[in-house]
Amino acid sequence: MVAETHLTVNDLVLTAIVSDAGPDRVDIPSLPGVQRLSVNALVEEARRAADLGIPAMAIFPNISENEKSEDAAEAANPKGLVPQAVRAIKDAVPEIGVIVDVALDPYTSHGHDGLMEGDIILNDPTVEMLARVGVMLADAGADIVAPSDMMDGRIEAVRQGLDDAGHTDISILSYAAKFASGFYGPYRDAIGTKTALKGDKRTYQMNPANIDVALREVELDLAEGADMVMVKPGMPYLDVISAIKAEFARPTFAFQVSGEYAMMKAAGQNGWLDYDRIMMESLMSFKRAGCDGILTYAAIEVAERLKESH
C-alpha cells in the first residue's frame, strides 16, 4: 500500500529474435530460455504476450549469411524477414504494438551499424539508408520504428522520410543513449554478428564514462523528432535514465540487454542467486529510475509472475 514504485505488465516490452532458417524454435546457448523463432513461432509468442496484457514487442532479425552484404541491401527489402514478420503479427494479433529496430548490423557482412569505406563508417549514406528502411517497415505495419545505430542526424532523416510517405502517425523510439558496452555479447550470438564484427563500435556508440554527452544526445534526438528515447544497456546506466527523465520529462525506455538477462539467468541456473527475485528487483530498479517502459527477454515470464501475484 505504501510502496513508492510499482511494476506492472504495462511496463514490459517483449524482446524477440526472428529467424529465416531452421526449425520453428532454436535455443540460443548464451541466452538461456530464449530462442530464435520462425515467423509462425513469433506470431505464437505475440499471441501469448498479448493474452498476458503485454502492450508491445520488439523484433530483431537473424538472417541467413548469404543475405548479408557490404551495402546491407537486404535491410530495405520489403519482402524481407522483418516486414514479413510484422505483417504476420499485425494480421494475427493486431492488438499488440510492434516495435522494429532500424539498424543495418544484422544485414552487413562486417557486423557494423553503418555502411563502410575501408575501416571508416560513412555517416550520411548510412542515414539515407536508415530513412528508407524506416519507411519500408512502417509500410509493413510497424507501430514504432526504433533507430539504434547512433549515427548523427538519423532521427531527423527518419522522421522526414516517414512524414513524406504519409506515416505521420508512426512514432520514433530513439536509441538516444546507446553505450559501447560489453553487455551485448549474447545478442550478437543471437543475430549472428559476433564472429563477423570487425573492430568495435566505439567510434559511434557512447563512452560508458559520459553522462553529459548522453543528455546532449537525447536533447538532439528530441529536437529532431523522436517521440521516445531509450538508454541501452539498462541496469549499469540507471543514473543516466534518472537524469534523462528529470531533465526532459519525456517517455523514457531502458533495454535490459542480453548480457544483463544472461548473467542473471545463469546465476539462477547455477544456484548462486534467486533468479525470480533478482529479475523482479532489476526491473523495479528501472521503474524507480524513471522508466516508462522496459525491453526485456523476460517479459512473458515476468508477466506470468505478476498475474499469479494478483
Rank of each mutant, 00 (worst) to 15 (best):
V2N: 15
A3L: 14
H6D: 11
T8Q: 08
V9W: 11
V13A: 04
T15R: 05
T15I: 14
A16F: 05
I17M: 12
S30V: 00
V39L: 10
V43I: 03
E44R: 15
A49T: 09
A58Q: 08
F60L: 12
E67V: 03
S69M: 06
A72I: 00
A85P: 00
A85D: 00
S109R: 00
H112C: 05
E117L: 13
I120D: 13
T126L: 03
M129S: 09
A138H: 00
G141H: 04
D143A: 09
G153R: 08
R154Q: 14
L162F: 09
H167Y: 12
D169P: 08
I170Y: 03
A177H: 03
A177G: 02
G182E: 14
F183L: 14
F183Y: 15
P186D: 04
K194V: 01
G199K: 05
K201H: 05
Y204G: 02
Y204T: 01
N207W: 07
A214I: 04
V218A: 10
E219L: 06
V229I: 13
V240I: 12
R250D: 00
A254T: 15
A262N: 07
A262H: 07
M263W: 06
M264V: 05
W272S: 12
D276F: 07
M280W: 01
K287D: 07
G290D: 02
G293E: 00
R305D: 11
R305N: 09
L306D: 02
